[in-house]
Write a protein that binds this DNA or RNA. Structure first.
Length: 342
DNA sequence: CCTCCACCGGAACGTGAGGAGT
DNA sequence: ACTCCTCACGTTCCGGTGGAGG
């Protein structure tokens, strides 16, 4: 969205004869200060390597490339909160807000986009004050608005009569229920359309939308599972094999034990429990696992971990991996012992 | 009310890969 | 060839903690 406005703005500026350059960076995707800055450099035509140069050096190059051109630069930092979160190192934002003091012919405008309304609390006060901030809050789309957007697009993409009103309403309602994300609603409609087409039916029904929703989620999960590093795959395998016996979720200790067994079975050096703990948290965020801190009082405090992805998807995707695949049917020793003792 | 379990999760630090500049 | 950068991924160390049981 911000991207779209940015290109429109550039066009408009062109028409009016006041050149304007735009740079769009998604901070969460970029990941670090360095890479955000590197993208900004590229946007103004300075070639930089993806690693290897000091941040200060990048800043110099950025500054130089800017003062060579004489059109102002509009910088859009999407998901800017990702940049601010890891405290202490908001040098980049600080420098950006002060960069105009050293430029003569051009200047920089900064737009930060964030879904988190409170991210400003984490900002360095110096940054906050020099950002003569103007705040615009967009609320998420409501179902009705999504419906309007959808039916507008649908006119172009679907033949008349192939799309029921109720179908559109459902797409809009489902997407509004999540985060009011228009892209999500459009995806839903597109996939539902594809499903109906594959079935050879003439109209997209509500049922297709529900199927589409499932399919989108399944595809996402499979994709994530596939691209996981070995240790994470082993962890998922461990949780999976434990979930068969322990219906109400295993705890960190159990999982780490099984994970260790799997590692020696695969001939891999196991990671520390601390490391495993953060991997589990990451898998939680990705929606593969479900980890919740629980306390058993006297008997300690730990995380209860269970599968969030379907067992079917896990077996399907992980058997593609020839190292992890053959461990899927492995029955952990500690489970056998437990069966005897109970 | 205090203890103490079984971990949690922050912080600092180490290592090796990928690359620039000289 | 050598020094200097960043980043990803791990390890080590350690203070913190909810609540059952004494």
């Amino acid at each position: 969205m911000a991207k779209f406005v940015l290109t429109r703005l550039e066009q408009k500026a062109q028409e009016l004869g006041g050149p304007l350059r735009g740079a769009y960076v998604n901070c969460r995707l970029a990941g670090t200060n360095y890479r955000v800055l590197a993208e900004l450099c590229r946007a103004v035509g300075a070639e930089v390597p993806f690693t290897g140069v000091a941040v200060g050096e990048l800043l110099d190059r950025f500054r130089e490339a800017l003062s060579n051109g004489d059109s102002p630069l509009l910088v859009v930092l999407d998901e800017i909160d990702a940049l601010v979160r890891r405290q202490e190192d908001d040098i980049l934002l600080y420098e950006l807000t002060r960069i105009n003091e050293t430029l003569r012919r051009s200047w920089v405008s900064l737009i930060g986009v964030s879904n988190d309304l409170h991210f400003k609390e984490f900002l360095d006060p110096r940054v906050l004050s020099s950002l003569s901030e103007e705040e615009v809050v967009f609320r998420p789309y409501l179902a009705d608005e999504l419906y309007d957007i959808l039916s507008d697009r649908a006119k172009a993409a679907f033949r008349p009569g192939t799309l029921h009103n109720a179908t559109l309403r459902l797409c809009a309602a489902l997407a509004a229920g999540e985060h009011g994300d228009a892209r999500r609603a459009l995806d839903l409609l597109r996939v539902a359309g594809e499903l109906a087409e594959r079935e050879g039916v003439s109209a997209v029904a509500e049922e297709h939308v529900r199927l589409a929703q499932q399919k989108i989620e399944q595809d996402r999960v499979s994709e994530v599972l596939r691209s996981l590093p070995v240790h994470s795959k082993l962890l998922v395998t461990a949780v999976h094999s434990l979930s068969i016996k322990l219906s109400d979720g295993a705890v960190t200790g159990d999982i780490y034990e099984v994970y260790n067994e799997l590692c020696s079975e695969a001939g891999i050096e196991p990671l520390t429990q601390r490391r495993v703990s953060t991997l589990v948290s990451e898998l939680d965020v990705l929606g593969i696992l479900n980890a919740r801190v629980v306390s058993f009082g006297r008997y300690g405090r730990t995380k209860r971990i269970r599968l969030a992805a379907s067992s079917k998807a896990i077996i399907e995707v992980l058997s593609e991996d020839n190292l992890v695949g053959r461990l899927l049917r492995y029955v952990p020793k500690c489970l056998q012992q437990r069966k005897k003792s109970s």
